[in-house]
């Protein structure tokens, strides 16, 4: 009972944090010059993109763990992280496209960031199509783990090199090429809280996914015992 209470108290804290982020987005943070109301998109579009990268990282980590330990549990975790990654990737893509329509005039124009996120979508798509093409569990785990790691080492090229080669229209307040922060303190507070909140939400979802996987395995074992 006690642990359950602790469980709920951190969720309550997260709820307060995210509510503050939403309030801060609309009433506290000032608007950036030239972006107008669309500054506010930054406080949830960028964290969604960030979580995509975190999920991708976690997927590669679990893939690596699978190759080391050869425990199918890690393969299920890698799959779960990738599923979460693709959800956040789609969210970031959609919000980015809507935002682009309003401020650049077109939903899609192959801006480096759009290219990068699209490539992440392609990688996730390839990963899941590889998984669905293989029937045997161990082979599936092994090959998709290798592919995930292979994709993982090529991603830095997209995220860091390609945006620097092409000129970007993207407002780039967090990590720009000059390494300067263009946000003021108020904006930064809301932005970083949002980033933190989204990261916690991701790990919460990941925890739920893990619970789900463990429960399914348990159920599978029970069914096997009966038969």
């Amino acid at each position: 009972m006690n642990s359950k209470l602790i469980n709920y108290s951190w969720q309550f804290g997260l709820f307060i944090l995210l509510s503050l982020v939403i309030i801060g987005t609309y009433f506290y943070a000032p608007l950036a010059k030239g972006l107008g109301e669309y500054t506010r998109v930054m406080y949830f579009h960028v964290p969604a993109a960030w979580v995509t990268v975190v999920a991708f990282f976690m997927g590669a980590f679990y893939s690596f763990m699978y190759l080391r330990k050869r425990d199918l549990l890690f393969d299920f975790y890698a799959e779960a992280a990738s599923q979460l990654g693709i959800i956040f990737c789609i969210l970031a893509t959609i919000t980015g496209a809507l935002w682009a329509k309003e401020s650049w005039g077109a939903y899609w124009n192959w801006d480096p960031r759009q290219t990068s996120i699209f490539i992440l979508l392609l990688i996730y798509g390839a990963y899941f199509s590889l998984r669905s093409a293989i029937e045997q569990n161990e082979t599936k785990a092994r090959l998709s783990a290798v592919y995930s790691l292979l994709a993982f080492i090529t991603v830095p090229f997209f995220i860091f090199i390609i945006p620097r080669i092409y000129e970007s229209l993207h407002p780039d307040p967090l990590v720009n090429t000059e390494g300067k922060l263009k946000m003021n303190a108020k904006m930064l507070t809301v932005f970083l809280s949002s980033l933190g909140g989204f990261t916690i939400v991701f790990f919460w979802l990941m925890h739920l996914k893990k619970t789900f996987i463990q429960l399914s395995i348990k159920l599978q074992k029970l069914t096997d015992q009966e038969n």
């Binding site: 987005t25 109301e37 969210l91 809507l98 309003e102």
Partner: peptide, 10 residues
């Protein structure tokens, strides 16, 4: 519009 985009995410 921003609110709409925000709602999609949440």
């Amino acid at each position: 519009i921003v609110l709409g985009i925000n709602l999609i995410v949440w």
